Amino acid sequence: MLIAVYLGLAFIVGIAAQNYRGRRGTPWFLLSLIISPLLAGLLLLASKDKRPAAVAVTITSSEERATNGPIFEKTCPECAEQVKVDAKICRFCRHAFT
């Protein structure tokens, strides 16, 4: 019974490494079998997250939209920088949107 719990916790560490830290799960599973699932879990929490950052959605149309979810952006016609859709003035070149 105790061996099954130990293996289950080691498996959880491997799954957490793969899904929540962007690391390979098998080495973390084996490491948790060797040193203990508790220590391997603590090392995993202390390790850096290797997952790629989420990419923001951008819209480059000139029509105005309400933003109730992701931040939508448009391109300034003067300086070509991305500004929020609801912006009245470009924060980079002070161009006034009509």
Rank of each mutant, 00 (worst) to 15 (best):
T58I: 11
I15W: 04
V5N: 05
Y6A: 11
C76D: 03
I71G: 06
G22P: 01
R65H: 14
G25V: 01
K88I: 12
L39V: 14
L38P: 00
A87F: 08
F92A: 05
G69P: 00
L43V: 07
F72L: 15
L9R: 02
E81L: 09
F97G: 02
C79F: 08
S47W: 03
A40T: 00
G8C: 07
A54Q: 10
N68M: 08
T26G: 04
T58Q: 12
T60Q: 11
L38M: 10
T98E: 09
V55P: 00
L31Y: 02
I12D: 00
V55M: 09
L44D: 04
V85Y: 03
Y6L: 13
P70V: 12
G69L: 08
R91F: 15
K88N: 08
S36A: 10
K48L: 12
S36Y: 02
N68C: 06
V83F: 04
E63D: 12
T60R: 11
E63P: 01
E78I: 12
L30H: 05
F11R: 00
V83R: 01
A4C: 06
A53V: 15
P77L: 07
P77D: 09
K84S: 11
G14D: 02
P70F: 10
G14K: 01
R65Y: 14
E64L: 13
R21P: 00
F97H: 05
V13P: 00
T67C: 15
G41K: 01
L45G: 12
A4F: 04
Y6D: 10
L39N: 04
I59L: 13
T75Y: 06
G14M: 03
I34F: 12
F72D: 06
A87H: 07
A53S: 15
I34N: 05
P77W: 06
T26Q: 06
P37L: 00
L2R: 13
Q82R: 12
K50Q: 14
I34Y: 11
E64D: 11
Y6K: 09
L38Y: 09
T58M: 10
P70Q: 15
A66Q: 14
A54G: 07
Y20T: 14
K74I: 04
S62F: 14
I35Q: 09
V13R: 01
C93Q: 06
A10L: 03
C79N: 06
T67M: 15
H95A: 05
K84C: 13
F29H: 01
A46Y: 02
I89M: 14
A53M: 13
Y20H: 10
N68H: 08
A87D: 08
T75L: 15
D49N: 14
L39H: 05
G41E: 02
W28A: 00
W28P: 00
V55A: 11
K74N: 04
A80D: 10
T58H: 13
A96I: 13
E63V: 10
F92C: 05
